Measured scan of single mutants.
Amino acid sequence: EPSQADLDALLSAVRDNRLSIEQAVTLLTPSSGGGSGGGSMDAKEILTRFKDGGLDRAAAQALLAGRTPA
């Protein structure tokens, strides 16, 4: 399960175009075949909204942490 520091680094990389959204989703869902963790939004949607400015960093982190299976 990614830590808050991992999520923060991942969000920074996506925002700075050092990591594509697809690459980030793969890192967030290493063994689930890329499927959502059952959250209301999947990781790709969360990351896309964050990059487009629709979500701030704290909200994106909380959503990603919340949808990651324990």
Rank of each mutant, 00 (worst) to 15 (best):
I21N: 01
E45N: 06
A5L: 15
T68C: 13
G66P: 05
A5R: 08
L7Y: 06
S40Y: 14
A70L: 02
A9I: 07
L28K: 01
S3E: 10
A13T: 01
A59P: 01
L63F: 04
A5W: 15
D56K: 04
L64N: 01
L47N: 00
L63G: 03
T48K: 08
T26Y: 14
L10P: 00
D42F: 13
A24V: 05
S12K: 06
A5P: 14
A9Q: 09
A24N: 00
A70P: 10
L10Q: 00
L47D: 01
E45K: 05
Q4S: 11
A70K: 06
A70G: 13
D16F: 06
G53E: 03
D8N: 08
A13E: 03
D42P: 05
D52C: 15
E22M: 07
G54F: 12
G38M: 15
A9E: 11
A58M: 10
S36D: 07
A70H: 03
K51W: 03
E45L: 07
R18C: 08
G33L: 12
D52S: 12
G37A: 08
A60S: 02
G66Q: 13
R57K: 14
K44H: 12
A58H: 06
A65Y: 07
G38S: 12
A24W: 01
L63R: 03
D6Y: 15
F50V: 02
T68G: 09
G37K: 08
A59K: 07
E22T: 05
M41P: 10
D8C: 14
R49W: 05
L55N: 01
A62L: 09
V25A: 08
G66Y: 08
M41N: 05
P69D: 08
D56M: 04
P30E: 10
N17R: 05
N17P: 01
L10I: 10
K44T: 09
G35H: 13
A24G: 03
A60D: 00
Q4W: 15
T68M: 13
P2A: 12
T26C: 15
L63V: 02
S31R: 10
L28E: 00
S40L: 15
S31H: 11
F50D: 00
D42A: 08
T26E: 15
N17C: 05
T48L: 08
S3M: 08
E22N: 06
A65P: 02
S40T: 15
T26G: 09
R15F: 11
E22A: 08
Q23N: 07
G39V: 10
R49Q: 06
A59G: 06
A24E: 00
V14R: 00
D8Y: 12
I46Y: 02
P2L: 15
Q4T: 15
R18D: 05
T48Q: 13
D42T: 12
S31G: 08
G38D: 12
S3D: 09
T48I: 09
I21S: 00
A13V: 02
K51Y: 05
I21L: 04
G34P: 14
G34S: 11
T68L: 06
L64M: 03
D42V: 06
D16G: 06
D56G: 05
T29L: 09
L27M: 12
M41Y: 11
Q61D: 03
G54H: 13
R57F: 15
A43Y: 15
A5H: 10
I46D: 01
R15S: 06
N17Q: 05
R49Y: 03
S3F: 15
A62E: 11
R57Q: 07
L27P: 01
D16P: 00
R67V: 11
P69L: 11
S36G: 12
D42G: 07
Q4F: 15
Q61C: 11
A62K: 12
D56Q: 04
F50Q: 00
P69E: 13
L55Y: 04
